[in-house]
């Protein structure tokens, strides 16, 4: 456990002494901010339209929160996660520090877990910095705090899954640039193939259970469903295990 903690501490420090974490967080905040502002304007337009029509129902502010943690986060993370994960393992090999880690008395799983958690801390910081946006809707609107909590949980779980995929990509190469591209392919593949698969006739509806987008959407709706939580947690564990196997297999070469 202390090994993992040491790895996490080093990883987080190293993120915040390089411009990388700041750049990634800045880009994330810009994307989220623009999408949030767009959603707010759309919401206002609908309220004004509704006010002029006595028969229409006033839309609730939850709709914005749902969009914020559902589709907005999904888009922003697809772009940001490869930037956060590209160096995690690729750089260790490139600058020969992998030898330090691989000759330390810890297991490869501990190593991979430490790396993963290090990047997860950055994700938490990043999401925390966007929290004021939905909170505005509670203070000045009528948004339901429960939806924010479940939406945030969804964003964290989905983000964790993408980070694990990015870490796997980073284990496959020595070049952070290649790692970023591969991570983008993995993440985009998993996300968009998932969305496309649900459009298939007959089996599409059942496939829905297995796509990250659908599970994220469920949490973003305000339903903390164990199905979605178990789905993301087991995907993370599976991908991290795969990564540990890749790292171990490289010892043989």
């Amino acid at each position: 456990m202390s090994y993992i903690w040491a790895l996490v501490r080093r990883e987080v420090k190293s993120y915040f002494v390089s411009p990388l974490a700041y750049t990634a967080i800045a880009v994330f905040l810009v994307i989220q901010g623009v999408l949030f502002a767009g959603a707010l304007m759309e919401y206002n337009r609908q309220r004004i339209a509704a006010a002029q029509n006595p028969l229409a129902q006033l839309p609730g502010a939850e709709a914005i929160v749902r969009g914020f943690f559902g589709s907005d986060v999904l888009w922003a993370l697809v772009v940001i996660v490869p930037l956060l994960t590209m160096r995690l393992l690729a750089d260790e090999r490139r600058q020969h520090t992998a030898e330090l880690l691989l000759t330390a008395p810890m297991t490869t799983r501990q190593l991979v877990t430490g790396k993963f958690l290090g990047s997860f801390v950055v994700l938490v910081v990043m999401l925390a910095m966007t929290l004021w946006m939905p909170l505005l809707l509670i203070v000045w609107g009528d948004a339901d705090p429960g939806v924010i909590v479940s939406g945030l949980l969804g964003a964290l779980l989905y983000g964790a899954f993408l980070l694990a995929l990015g870490l796997l990509a980073s284990s496959l190469t020595e070049s952070p640039f290649v790692a970023a591209i591969v991570a983008l392919l993995f993440i985009a593949g998993v996300t968009f193939l998932g969305i496309q698969a649900t459009n298939l006739p007959v089996i599409g509806r059942n496939l829905d259970q297995f796509t990250p987008a659908a599970n994220l959407a469920e949490l973003a709706q305000g339903v903390i469903d164990t199905h979605a939580v178990v789905y993301f947690v087991s995907m993370v564990v599976f991908v991290l295990d795969l990564t540990a196997r890749v790292v171990d297999s490289q010892r043989w070469r």
């Binding site: 992998a98 030898e99 330090l100 000759t103």
Partner: peptide
């Protein structure tokens, strides 16, 4: 690994 200290050919250093 508990018994050894190892200095590889390229010292494994984190520049930052």
């Amino acid at each position: 690994r508990r018994e050894i200290g190892y200095l590889p050919e390229h010292p494994p250093l984190y520049p930052e």
